[in-house]
Design a protein around this nucleic acid. Structure first.
Lengths: 327, 327
DNA sequence: CCCATGTTTGCATACGTATTCATTCCAGCA
DNA sequence: TGCTGGAATGAATACGTATGCAAACATGGG
């Protein structure tokens, strides 16, 4: 950075003023074709790139979007990250990656976002406490919760139609002739868990069925333990709905290891449709997130000046049922 | 960003000069306890954070590290990303995430890195053409290739001891009594592929064995197809070494689907030790990357001013064999 | 009490760019 | 040719911070 090529040097070489150089690189500015050409040639020769720091400083506008990830527990998120980065790149934004260790977006992480005055924040696979939400509002940083809803936070949320999908899943399993049901959940308090649980159990109730609810945490290991326990304690049901594909794999493997056959003895269905679900040992039936549309909507909410600072909108987008071998 | 709290406002509230405010937030600067306290109180009250743009501009030094990812094909990388972000955070750096679609780091992506004059670049799961390497050198951006080596690029490389590990794997399989061998590879030209292939076949040769080499691309699907073809064409061997865990899964599943038993009929071993390898359906024997040490060394290479701009160092770190159920 | 020494402090400036404002340029027309 | 109005240009300034410099201040020894 010490030997940075500046607009002044380009200007000198091109025989114009620094202003003209700037105008060439600022879209919508008025420059004659002649000088534009001279400037571009000089810039090319020197390898000039406008300095983003100076640019963001003077324009009082950041070209960074903060992307908050919790971890690597679920392969579903890296996929969404990829989509975000490539879409944002098209719009001229770069991505500042924040990796929280905690379930919640921490104050410490907020610091980085504030120092760069990011144009917006996407919070994935993590949640924001009301205090954190307040902080974001206070500093007028547009934020959207991706795949999470935090009631009362006033933050935008973009989620899958969890409840509706869970109802659909319930009906599907009933149609398949199942009479007893189990729901294996995610972390207590996670909106995806709550909404899917609600839709599933309510719809079952509507049809006169009950549901065994087992606690979980979105991990394979816990899925496995739950599956093992179901078999060993004799509490196996005709159908199992796992809050997440990853958990479904664990359950599936626990069943298989104990000689329980899927889908003959038990029907199993997950949620997410990550790549692995189509792999041979699983062939898991599941409900696919509309990732692309979720990403597009998130970006829209962040960057539209009309909506970014307005009250939090909560969106539930419809996904698609993917029926494979486990139902 | 329009209503940014500046050091001037803090200064006014605290009754000191802007310089003093700056000094409080610049470590190593000389401030009295009294003013420090006044400033911190005022800053807290106003929610002041130093503006990174102004700071990076005046200091001519970026606090960003570029992290280049190719995609989401291999769960091994997200794990490393997490390690990078958390380690860099400790050192006061933030992460600029670049997502290349291509196998190579593209010029277009370089632009973002240059605009922010990043303090360094980590290139993961992708490679850099000689032209790109030249570009990085020209702009004096320290770079390290993570898990890749590009001879002649002059870039630092931090990799696993691929060749040595592959030899070890060969000896292990020989010890297990295997007489015929297959290597299922990765993308042509990828250094991990080349090095593991070399170590494996050479060591086998040393013991008087040949090796069937099948082409691959690091994906599950290709692993599966290779596995299927081996069975169906009758070219099954006593042992199979897959360049990557992901590919090993595909091979394993193809075998299983066709009634070939692992490890009784075929011994199978992968490379990476991603989380899934310990899952019940696979229990894959594999060789674990020393991720933590690889990350630490990468950061060291980037940030040590003595080494960051020096000629590219190529490091191979030893990992650890993980023997599970497939050998 | 005074001077010497070291520590704090404020002023002014610079980082590289976008943009306002005044000036110059130039095409088009009478 | 002389005018006019719009387009293009350059000079100057501002963004928010770190830092060199000189002035102010504190401290302690004689």
């Amino acid at each position: 950075m010490e030997n940075q090529v500046t607009a002044h040097e380009v200007a000198k070489l091109a025989g114009v003023s620094q202003s003209s150089v700037s105008r060439v690189f600022t879209k919508g500015a008025s420059v004659s074709g002649k000088t534009r050409e001279k400037v571009l040639k000089a810039a090319e020769q020197l390898g000039y790139r406008p300095n983003e720091y100076a640019r963001s400083l003077i324009m009082r506008k950041s070209s960074l979007i903060g992307l908050v990830m919790k971890g690597v527990s679920n392969p579903y998120y890296p996929h969404a990250v990829k989509k975000f980065t490539s879409e944002l790149k098209k719009l001229g934004y770069s991505v500042l990656l924040i990796d929280t260790d905690d379930i919640e977006l921490q104050m410490h992480d907020i610091d980085a976002l504030l120092s760069y005055h990011v144009a917006g924040v996407v919070i994935m696979d993590a949640t924001a406490s009301l205090q954190t939400a307040e902080m974001l509002k206070r500093f007028r940083i547009p934020a959207v919760l991706f795949n999470r809803v935090v009631p009362g936070s006033g933050l935008h949320s973009v989620s899958c139609e969890n409840e509706t999908a869970a109802r659909e899943i319930a009906r599907l399993l009933i149609d398949r002739g199942c009479k007893s049901f189990t729901y294996v959940g995610g972390r207590e308090g996670a909106s995806t868990h709550i909404e899917r649980l609600k839709g599933f159990t309510e719809e079952l109730e509507n049809h006169g069925f009950g549901c065994q609810v087992l606690p979980g945490d979105f991990t394979y290991g816990t899925g496995y333990r739950n599956g093992a326990e179901m078999v060993e304690s004799g509490r196996l049901t005709d159908a199992v709905f796992a809050v997440t594909d990853i958990m479904a794999y664990g359950i599936f493997d626990a069943f298989r290891d104990r000689g329980v056959r899927v889908p003959e003895q038990v029907k199993l269905i997950g949620f997410d449709d990550i790549e692995m679900s189509s792999w041979s040992p699983y062939q898991l039936s599941t409900y696919a997130h509309p990732v692309d549309r979720m990403v597009a909507l998130s970006i829209e909410l962040l960057l539209d000046p009309e909506r970014s600072h307005a009250d939090g909108e909560v969106h539930y987008l419809p996904g698609e049922m993917k029926l494979r071998g486990t139902t």
